[in-house]
Design a protein around this nucleic acid. Structure first.
Length: 290
DNA sequence: ATTGAGTCCTGAAGGC
DNA sequence: TGCCTTCAGGACTCAA
């Protein structure tokens, strides 16, 4: 489900509830999500204090007080919700029951509970040494973080140099940019007026510097991600933030999910098309995206 | 080295 | 109403 803006929205919702709190109890409703939980997963979490809740790409990172980090990925349909006490002024969930697909429950020190729900179970959780996180297989080969300060036209040019793959595939490749998914790749390419079929390497000059169009693309990626975070992410199907609120960014999609509808660019007469690249839908305007 | 296909899993939506 | 097919925000493994 979630791309970077959705994961960041979840992080911001969970951080005030989780940071500084101790995990009193852990309940696993099954032995695996996408992968089996690591050995003694529940025992290793129990009693630990959560020092901070961070994010890298689409991963949530809970730094624990014993030098390990809880790594969580939401896959396609993962969601967290909070039940019980929360800080003053925060949304308070009615105390709920275990629902279908509630797989993990973390009970915190003040009886607040963090519940992970994931119908498709493409998500996963594991533990790793905090000091070695950068070398962990999930993170060692991750690309640029698509936010201001994490990516520039120059660094993007370096990552795309010589790439003969279609731009769509390159932007979806987590080793190039870490955190973009199908929605925001489509939206960013539309904003930069770039065809998803164009070969990625054509956006880099022979001397390795970014072309003007690549500079535009880098800006488009950063602004679409920042705008989506500001809107609380996109709510499609069952996506909700940790506080139960719905993201609003889907109302501003220019192309995603808009097949056969008119291009939103005022001077453009194009109709949004859907093609399949690498087995996934790409939405774009064949008239203004070149 | 890269890339496309198949794979995991459930649920929603649309056609008949 | 139900049964069937298709599709879905991700990303790993494998074959070519």
């Amino acid at each position: 489900m979630p791309e970077l803006p959705e994961v960041e929205t979840v992080r911001r919702g969970l951080a005030p509830v989780m940071e500084g709190r101790r995990i009193e109890a852990v309940h696993l409703a099954r032995a695996d999500l996408r992968f089996p939980f690591p050995d003694d997963f529940a025992a290793r979490l129990t009693g630990r204090r959560i020092e901070s809740l961070g994010r890298r790409a689409k991963y949530l990172l809970g730094a624990l007080d014993d030098g390990t980090t809880l790594i969580a990925h939401l896959g396609m349909s993962g969601a967290f919700r909070v039940e019980g006490h929360m800080p003053p002024g925060q949304f308070v969930y009615p105390k709920g029951k275990i629902a279908a697909h509630d797989h993990v429950t973390l009970t915190l020190s003040d009886t607040a509970r963090i519940i992970y729900n994931d119908p498709r179970r493409f998500g996963f959780m594991t533990l790793a040494d905090t000091a070695l996180l950068d070398q962990h297989p999930y993170f060692a080969h991750l690309g640029l973080e698509p936010v201001a300060g994490g990516m520039t036209a120059t660094s993007l040019a370096k990552a795309l140099t010589g790439k003969k793959t279609p731009l769509k595939a390159a932007l979806l490749d987590q080793r190039v940019i870490a955190g973009l998914g199908n929605i925001y790749v489509c939206e960013a390419m539309w904003r930069a007026r770039l065809s998803p079929r164009r070969l990625a390497g054509t956006l880099v000059r022979r001397d390795g510097r970014p072309t003007a169009r690549l500079t535009t693309l880098a800006s488009a990626i950063i602004t679409v991600i920042e705008e989506a975070i500001a809107a609380g992410g996109s709510s499609l199907r069952d996506y909700v933030a940790a506080d139960g609120s719905l993201g609003r960014f889907q109302h501003t999609f220019a192309v995603y999910g808009r097949e056969e509808e008119p291009c939103r660019r005022p001077e453009c007469s194009g109709i949004v098309a859907r093609i399949v690249q690498g087995g996934r839908s790409t939405f774009f305007c064949p008239v203004c995206q070149r």
